[in-house]
């Protein structure tokens, strides 16, 4: 069965164009075509970094210009956009980018993961599993996973072309030899569909397993470095590891102090200068959805939980983060 695209209501989009003096979603059409062609080739060669003629955007390089250009090329009047930074919708960068698109494209915006058709993110993948109807756009600072081993583009391009990833494995193994484990905790390199080693962008490695066979399309934009890459839906994304040292992700003994979630990535909130701290969900929408559904945390105070008879599953207490645990079957 075919999905039919009909003419959506375009009044809002036309009004936006007239009001701002800029084209829909800011970029001119020739630039959008160039970016769109790069995105399509990125999808056709999963994990390969397609060079593109990145434009100077009205936001500084390093602040999401790649993600913005990808979103601007993709987004249409029927889309609903969510923008997160560090998992939260209300961080300054996220607020700025969201208002940029609300202004230049007149699109609907949301803070709810399930309502969004396009999600632009910096440093996190939402906790709520994404669906086939969604596109996740990552802001990428350094797209080249081999950059730390070899700063030269002429060399890294050769390494990718020849699938020469020995140096990467050696560097990870040196970590194990020295520290007994791989110490890379974010921007942890992955291999896409068994071919290209790819930077997942600086997401914590906690999020890496979510990339594997994700139903949503994942697009990556690096503006300053002028690269676009993609992971099509349901594509294998494997975090690099070794048989005797399988990939692991972060875990915490604590749950979110606000919603009691025990399965989410937690931010550490410092409450005083004497080591006092509590943990809350980094994904602000996930936390809010849970609280709306009646889940509560211990408010950073295990005694509070006991007094209020909060179910143990919602608010177990603990001391220090437990460290890493095997990521399970997904990897």
């Amino acid at each position: 069965m075919a999905d039919v695209i009909d003419h959506p209501s375009r009044t809002a989009a036309a009004e936006t164009r007239a009001a701002t003096g800029y084209n829909f979603a800011y970029l001119d059409e020739q630039t959008k075509r160039m970016i769109r062609r790069a995105i399509l080739k990125g999808v056709a060669v999963p994990g390969y970094q397609v060079p593109f003629g990145s434009r100077e955007m009205p936001l500084p390089y390093g602040w999401g210009t790649g993600g913005i250009q990808v979103t601007a090329a993709v987004i249409g009047p029927d889309d609903t956009l969510k923008v997160i930074d560090q998992g939260a919708d209300d961080t300054t960068n996220a607020v700025n980018i969201r208002s940029f698109f609300a202004k230049t494209a007149g699109v609907a915006t949301t803070e709810k993961t399930v309502e969004a058709s396009v999600i632009q993110t910096r440093h996190r993948i939402p906790e709520t599993p994404l669906s086939e109807d969604q596109i996740l756009v990552y802001q990428v600072p350094i797209p080249e996973p081999l950059r730390w081993l070899e700063p030269r583009e002429t060399e890294t391009r050769k390494m990718h072309a020849l699938e020469e990833y020995g140096a990467m494995h050696v560097s990870l193994y040196e970590d194990i030899a020295k520290y007994g484990r791989i110490t890379k905790s974010y921007n942890y390199p992955v291999k896409v569909n068994g071919r290209y080693v790819m930077s997942p962008s600086p997401i914590p490695k906690f999020d890496n397993p979510k990339m594997d066979r994700m139903p949503a399309l994942q697009l990556f934009g690096a503006g300053r470095e002028k690269r676009i890459y993609a992971v099509p839906p349901y594509t294998r994304v494997k975090s690099l590891d070794f048989e005797d040292h399988p990939f692991t992700i972060e875990t915490w003994d604590q749950c979110c102090a606000l919603c009691g979630a025990g399965d989410s990535y937690l931010d550490e909130v410092v409450t005083d200068d004497k080591g006092g701290k509590m943990y809350v969900c980094s994904d602000s929408d996930y936390c809010e959805q849970r609280r709306e559904a009646g889940h509560v945390g211990d408010g950073g105070d295990p005694a509070y939980a006991a007094r209020n008879q909060i179910p143990a599953g919602d608010a177990p207490a603990g001391d220090e983060p437990a460290g890493d645990e095997p990521a399970g079957d997904k990897q």
Binding site: I5, R10, N23, K32, I39, L40
Partner: peptide, 19 residues
């Protein structure tokens, strides 16, 4: 509408290429 029709067409091609 060259702007919005191009966008809709691209999204159809992107969806087709991704799936």
């Amino acid at each position: 509408d060259p702007v919005l029709d191009s966008q809709a067409t691209f999204r159809a091609v992107l969806d087709a290429m991704a799936r």
